[in-house]
Nucleic acid binder design. Sequence first.
RNA 1: GGCUGGGUAGCUCAGUUGGUAGAGCAGCGGACUGAAAAUCCGCGUGUCAGGGGUUCGACUCCCUUCCCCGCCA
Length: 316
Amino acid sequence: MSERLPGPVACVCGPTASGKSAVADLVASSVGCPVVSVDAMQVYRSMDIGTAKTPASERAAELLMVDVAGFDEPYSVALFQRDARACVDRSLARHGCAVLCGGTGLYLDAVIDDMDFPAGDAASKSRARYEALANEQGPQALWDLLRQRDPKSAEAVHPHNVRRVVRALELADQGASYAERTRHLRRRKPRYDALIWALVPERDALYARIDARVDEMFSAGLVDEVKALADAGIRKSPTASQAIGYKEVLAALDGQCTLDEAKEAVKRSTRRYAKRQLSWIKRDGRATVIPMGETSPEQAAWIIEGQLRRSREARR
RNA sequence: GGCUGGGUAGCUCAGUUGGUAGAGCAGCGGACUGAAAAUCCGCGUGUCAGGGGUUCGACUCCCUUCCCCGCCA
């Protein structure tokens, strides 16, 4: 008999602009626990408009794992895993359940599954060295190096994917193997008793919502927010400066395009991001899909609350 | 009304002496364990405006209808 997993942990996911924040807030306030955000960019302070953080005044439940890092610190999955799990464990201890909400698939898996990241620094020295090699001799040369060092991992990574090739080499330096760590979902062990829902709007409706939301961000002052961050040095950050909405406006501020073009670029990037999120959700396969065309946020929350309640009762 | 130029993928357009069509952007699908809103891989999605004719064969040539741009009335 295996030991019972801690839980239940309700995970509300879905593509950007699917309405998951509102739904998670309803669920959490109804059961009386906080919402733990699972979002790679909302962790950064001062990035509010572009990351669509729900203002405190519009929230009924407390929101955790937001504003936990400065935009100048490179945050990462491993740090997120550590910090978010602490939030989840505290919520389980105090409230008997936890509610997660977010669209960053890798971050969600890192929290709820038994993924482990090798101890040690985030390999900054060797990373720079390998990147330089790729720049000087080309991606293929770097991949060839990986093939010599760790053929199995080379097989698992496309030669053009310099970022992954670099990471695989870093792992090889630490005596670990990218290929071994990259196991399919099915072979991972869950860490929590997780219930996962995916809010999925129809594609046309989703894209219309994305367009509207980007327009709102610009009228709410996104450009000023980015200007302030640019003055504060966000361009030096390898992570925060790549956030959708920020990188495009930064390009416009640098004179590479007009602000109108930047706005269109933000919409396009967001659509593509939403597609990648849907891809992740589909592959994962664990989520119960709630089609948002026919379902209001209140109805979705009601469905989730019901299942969450049953799960809590079953644990007693 | 007359005369030009044009109607080809969602958009902008290319298409060579007639052999059922291809670029960019958009889009679609996928992978993904320390940058993940990142990074990478794959895929043309088409009544060639409609109808007729010539031809073995028409997006290509001819006739005709419709629509758009421009110029002249």
